[in-house]
Nucleic acid binder design. Structure first.
Lengths: 115, 115
DNA sequence: ATCGTTTATCGCCGATGGACGATGACCGAA
DNA sequence: TTCGGTCATCGTCCATCGGCGATAAACGAT
């Protein structure tokens, strides 16, 4: 794979007149909308950075499943990936995470300001 | 149908050692993780309250599809529903929305504080 | 070279999501 | 009552998700 999670699309299908913004926000929230991935994010953050195996040990999920969740998080740009010898180091991208938080806050604000 | 989306569960499946919190947050984010629903939330908020038809006119989605999206938002507690004659009035629950925002912010904070 | 470990990917499967059209209920107006 | 508009629900279809085991690649150590 090349890189950016949003190069072309990678978002859910949306009706015609949806702001592109909504698609991006939705895609990021989708990455966060699974309990296992939320826990993985927490775990990564607490450990600063982890390899896949550490996460597998923590949760009782198959290694392939964890790898898949990690991939989804990386593709959403919420987690950074760096190969390290035969390991893979995964670390939370705090800026991206903060950005998601800001996006949600902005949505909520836009909803309240319009009243 | 009987009732509340969370009576027993209504959340996504989660590995054993997921904080119950994560399931609740994930469920709410799931409701927000679709571009159409985000746009619907914005529209509801801008109009203060809408009936289903108004939303259908705004987006080119079938009435049944919009109704389904609204149902999901209501079940997630993000939108309030009130029957009004033969119409249905839908309005954003700003408190609930703010709560979601707070949940995400808390997640992000917990990730940053642990460093 | 061989083994053990770690990882990503593949294929499969059941379940869910998202879209639609059709239908029937409800209600106001004619 | 009948008609038109609004709505929720049902059934269907297709795509995606989420889980798993199996496999192969990569690499360090023996």
């Amino acid at each position: 794979m090349t890189e950016s999670p949003f190069e072309t699309d990678g978002c859910r299908p949306a009706p015609r007149n949806c702001a592109p913004d909504s698609r991006v926000v939705a895609a990021r929230l989708a990455a966060l909308s699974h309990p296992a991935r939320i826990e993985i994010i927490k775990h990564l953050s607490a450990s600063n950075s982890c390899c896949c195996r550490e996460v597998v040990d923590r949760f009782d999920l198959a290694q392939s499943t964890v790898s898949q969740h990690l991939k989804i998080l990386v593709e959403a740009g919420l987690v950074r990936f760096e190969p390290d010898r035969q390991r893979s180091r995964y670390a939370v991208d705090h800026a991206a995470l903060a950005d998601v938080s800001a996006s949600v806050a902005a949505l909520v604000n836009s909803c309240c300001s319009g009243r």
